[in-house]
Design a protein around this nucleic acid. Structure first.
Lengths: 174, 174
DNA sequence: ACCAAATCGTTGCGCATGCAACCAATACGT
DNA sequence: ACGTATTGGTTGCATGCGCAACGATTTGGT
């Protein structure tokens, strides 16, 4: 093996004081980087479940979950709820509709938008998928104590709130 | 405004017991989702800095940072260090080389690989970029106390280690 | 009533990404 | 020493994404 660089992830606290005089970014210690690595690892592991077993992309998965949670909803609700770009949703919805997993019902009160909902087949997939997703989450956080899990959630929340202010505008992919 | 769905991020603890009998995924409470949103928010905010001000993509930024940190390194070292696919690195390196920010020196001992290093211009950019990145990080985590910051880092570390086991293989984009 | 601005959703375009195939060079087994 | 397997790095290809422009519809101002 030869992967000591990544598996080592050497943390060098001795370096800290140097950052003052000659600012250096230590990638492995850089929080945005770490967050991304963790999020990617998690996403990819999860994606295997719903891609290989249900043929769903990440955006499709989010659409399905949202509709499973809310019965029916418009595309822009889903976009807001899943923090995704509306074009991403549009394409995911088109694909899901073509596969017969969701149905589109035009809204008579506002004919620009359409209400989306799971078809019976769609709900079937959702009901098979949801327990697996939750089981994954459970396995994933099982290295932490309950206390730590609550803490993590609260830290993430506060950081997310703050991050939205640092970058006021813009959707987020996922 | 009409974004109550996303800005509300309603957390409904009362729902918890329902998950036992009828497993439902509440997207806003789903940890992988939250991690992704936070990571994306952070990435995008950061990306603005080095895209708009230095014309660097995320992979390019990671190459620059790695070389700033280690003087010289091969492409595959950088890939491992930045947890990125080797093709991503290859293209980032090509672009940086063309812009004259990094130089490639063939390794006589193993002529498959090449040692990469920052040119003076590259280092100049790095030295302008590093303080800004660190300042961003500082601003970013400033909502947390020192204690909480240490805790967050440790939680992330443990989760990352665990996640690597759940998804044993595969690079990570970023 | 009318016109401008805003909103929902779709689509064409350019670009980045991951994958797999590939080339060149090196390591390994026998 | 020879052939095969492995490794570093590049590239063609298909896919997916965000952006911006657009059509259709609705809202708001006057």
């Amino acid at each position: 093996m030869r992967n000591d660089l990544v598996s080592g992830m050497a943390r060098q606290t001795a370096e800290k004081k140097q950052e003052v005089s000659d600012p250096r970014v230590i990638l492995e210690d850089f929080l945005p980087y770490r967050l991304n690595v963790l999020a990617s690892l998690t996403s990819n592991a999860l994606a295997q479940i719903y891609a290989e077993r249900f043929g769903l992309s990440i955006p499709a998965w989010r659409v399905v979950v949202t509709l499973g949670q809310y019965e029916y909803r418009t595309a822009r609700d889903i976009a807001a709820h899943g923090v995704m770009h509306k074009s991403t949703i549009s394409r995911a919805v088109a694909s899901l509709e073509q596969r017969g997993l969701i149905a589109r019902r035009p809204n008579r009160d506002d004919r620009r938008e359409a209400l989306l909902e799971l078809t019976p087949e769609g709900r079937e997939i959702y009901e098979a998928l949801a327990p697996e997703a939750l089981a994954f989450e459970e396995r994933f956080v099982s290295v932490l104590t309950e206390e730590e899990q609550r803490l993590l959630v609260s830290l993430i929340d506060r950081l997310s709130g703050h991050a939205r202010q640092l970058a006021p505008e813009g959707e987020v992919e996922g």
